[in-house]
Amino acid sequence: MELQLRSATWEDYDAVNRIIREGQEEHADALPDRFARLDHVVAMGWYRSFSDQPHKEIIVAEVAGELVGVAMLEMKKSPTYEALVPRSYAYLNELAVSSSYQRQGIGRKLYEASVLWAKEREAVSLELNVWEFNEKALRFYASVGMSTLNRTLTVNLI
């Protein structure tokens, strides 16, 4: 399998949505009160913002001309509260691999490319959110050295 990583183009929009929709469906199955079922999970305006700005990037993974994975990154700054140290960090909005290509090292390659992208922009860290039900993602991120920084807690009121 020859894997190629590259920056996404406009022509990749539908394929990127197809890949991210697979993960969205898993989330909707696990948490239907939180996640909707959508044909286009990535809105065109949001997708466009990643190609229009130097502090955002979409990296896609291709095998034999087929898009099989995607990482969507952006640089962020910490909130300007006196109690927080000012810092710039990279945020990984999406990391997804088509189900038929998972467990072949593609997610790891996308993650490594994301780390490199962040370092090139002098980010002090790479951060992301993952839902507690998503044990597969939790194991993957632990395997690449990520750890839990904080947690969001909730209580249902209705």
Rank of each mutant, 00 (worst) to 15 (best):
Glu2Pro: 04
Leu3Tyr: 02
Leu3His: 02
Gln4Lys: 15
Leu5Phe: 05
Leu5Thr: 08
Leu5Glu: 07
Arg6Trp: 03
Ser7Asn: 13
Ala8His: 11
Ala8Pro: 10
Trp10Cys: 08
Trp10Ala: 15
Glu11Leu: 09
Asp14Trp: 10
Ala15Asn: 12
Ala15Trp: 04
Arg18Gly: 04
Arg18Val: 08
Glu22Ser: 12
Gly23His: 09
Gln24Met: 09
His27Thr: 03
Asp29His: 10
Asp29Glu: 14
Ala30Lys: 07
Asp33Val: 03
Asp33Phe: 11
Ala36Cys: 01
Ala36Pro: 07
Arg37His: 07
Arg37Thr: 10
Arg37Glu: 10
Leu38Glu: 15
Asp39His: 12
Val41Phe: 06
Val41Arg: 06
Val42Leu: 15
Ala43Lys: 13
Gly45Gln: 13
Gly45Arg: 11
Trp46Gln: 12
Ser49Cys: 02
Phe50Met: 10
Phe50Cys: 12
Ser51Asp: 04
Asp52Thr: 06
Gln53Cys: 09
Pro54Tyr: 02
His55Gly: 06
His55Gln: 11
His55Asn: 12
His55Val: 00
Lys56Glu: 02
Lys56Thr: 04
Glu57His: 11
Ile58Lys: 03
Ile58Tyr: 04
Ile59Ala: 01
Ala61Met: 10
Ala61Val: 11
Val63Ile: 12
Gly65Tyr: 06
Glu66Arg: 13
Leu67Thr: 11
Leu67Ala: 13
Val68Met: 00
Val70Arg: 05
Val70Met: 08
Leu73Ile: 04
Met75Phe: 08
Lys76Gly: 03
Ser78Glu: 14
Ser78Ile: 07
Thr80Cys: 03
Tyr81His: 11
Glu82Pro: 09
Glu82Tyr: 08
Leu84Tyr: 13
Pro86Cys: 02
Pro86Val: 04
Arg87Met: 14
Arg87Ala: 15
Tyr89Gln: 06
Ala90Tyr: 07
Ala90Leu: 08
Ala90Glu: 05
Tyr91Phe: 15
Leu92Pro: 09
Asn93Met: 09
Leu95Tyr: 09
Leu95Gly: 07
Ala96Asn: 14
Ala96Met: 13
Val97Leu: 06
Val97Ala: 06
Ser99Ile: 05
Ser99Cys: 07
Ser99Trp: 10
Ser99Thr: 14
Ser100Gln: 14
Tyr101Phe: 15
Arg103Asp: 13
Gln104Phe: 01
Ile106Gln: 01
Arg108Phe: 03
Arg108Gly: 02
Arg108Trp: 01
Lys109Asn: 12
Leu110Trp: 02
Tyr111Cys: 02
Glu112Ile: 01
Ser114Lys: 10
Val115Ile: 13
Trp117Ile: 03
Trp117Ser: 03
Ala118Met: 05
Lys119Glu: 15
Glu120Asn: 15
Glu120Trp: 00
Val124Phe: 03
Glu127Val: 08
Glu127Arg: 12
Glu127Cys: 07
Asn129Phe: 10
Val130Lys: 02
Glu135Pro: 00
Lys136Asp: 12
Arg139Asn: 12
Arg139Trp: 04
Arg139Gln: 13
Tyr141Pro: 05
Tyr141Ala: 08
Tyr141Trp: 13
Tyr141Val: 11
Ala142Leu: 02
Ala142Thr: 09
Val144Ser: 05
Val144Pro: 07
Val144Glu: 07
Gly145Phe: 10
Gly145Gln: 08
Ser147His: 14
Ser147Met: 05
Ser147Gln: 12
Leu149Ser: 14
Arg151Glu: 14
Leu153Gly: 01
Thr154His: 08
Leu157Cys: 05
Ile158Leu: 04
